[in-house]
Amino acid sequence: MELRNVRGLTGVDITPYDISGGSPGRHLGLPSATATLIIDLADGLVLGTENRSGTDTYRCVLAGMHLRPVTIHHDGSQVGVQVSFSPTAVRTVFGVPAGELMHDATELSQLDAPFARRLHERLAQARRQDRAAVCAAALTDIAADDSPVGDAFAAWDYLARRRGKATIADLVEQSGWSARHLTTLFTAEFGVGPKQAARLMRFDAARAALAAGTPAVDVAIGCGYADQSHMSREFTDLTGHPPRALQKLRAAEFA
């Protein structure tokens, strides 16, 4: 379920999931140009990251954009709801810049304990088929009436509409600011500069196209990579795996 223009709330995608019967293992949480909220309705979501030893367990975890994958440890079953937020939606719902969440995972109760408790209780009580609607209603209840505005958000929207296929020169032309000033504004709000944001957007688009069955050579061209080898290097740098190996790994995660 995608929310569009509900009390100014855009850029939110809600995905309930209910996976069972698999073998215990690990699942990669991949880099993305979105922040992610996961409400776990089982025994807690167990996460491991490269910059921490060991794992942490969360009930409602809000993770910012990241440039390296996180590892989700599971026992073969997972039940919950995943919500993806654009940086604009992060501001609208949680009232903080996306940059404050960058490279980190936070228990939602640390930001808003009453909302975290209310959200988890509503979803735990909801029927499986109603969870997306229940989650959407809870988010719109706390969303600000207006979307944030400013040159940083305009630059992000410009990049997002082009799925990362834009240059700093393009952004400078659109904004009227110098490259240095625009990059400073952009990084302060989102935690990454325009080049890294565009990189994540291209990766998101390429991964979706490959999953849909588009040939790799066509994906590379369509998503703005110099060639297929360039795309492969980017996938390996962001995930540790080239495209084909990543697809096989993802397909086997809950086998």
Results as ranks from 00 to 15, higher is better:
Met1Phe: 08
Met1Tyr: 03
Arg4Tyr: 02
Arg7Met: 04
Thr10Ala: 14
Tyr17Gly: 10
Tyr17Val: 13
Arg26Ser: 15
Arg26Phe: 11
His27Arg: 14
Leu37Ile: 09
Thr49Val: 10
Asn51Met: 08
Ser53Leu: 07
Gly54Tyr: 02
Tyr58Gly: 06
Tyr58Met: 07
Cys60Asn: 15
Leu62Val: 04
Gly64Glu: 00
Met65Gly: 08
His73Thr: 14
His74Pro: 06
Ser77Met: 07
Gln78Ala: 15
Gln78Ser: 15
Gly80Tyr: 10
Val81Pro: 07
Phe85Ser: 11
Ser86Pro: 03
Pro87Lys: 02
Val90Ile: 11
Val90Trp: 00
Phe94Arg: 06
Pro97Tyr: 11
Glu100Asn: 10
Glu100Pro: 00
Met102His: 07
Asp104Gly: 15
Glu107Pro: 01
Leu108Ile: 08
Ser109Lys: 06
Asp112Arg: 14
Arg117Lys: 09
Leu123Pro: 06
Ala124Asn: 10
Arg127Leu: 09
Gln129Ile: 08
Gln129Glu: 14
Val134Phe: 01
Asp146Gln: 11
Val149His: 10
Ala152Leu: 05
Ala154Ser: 10
Tyr158Asp: 11
Tyr158Glu: 12
Leu159Gly: 09
Ala160Glu: 14
Arg163Gln: 11
Ile168Pro: 04
Trp177Ile: 01
Thr183Glu: 12
Thr184Leu: 11
Leu185Thr: 00
Lys195Ile: 07
Ala206Asn: 05
Gly213Ala: 02
Thr214Tyr: 01
Pro215Gly: 10
Pro215Thr: 10
Asp218Gly: 03
Asp227Asn: 15
Met231Asp: 11
Phe235Glu: 06
Phe235Leu: 10
Thr239Asp: 02
Gly240Ala: 05
His241Gln: 15
Arg250Gly: 13
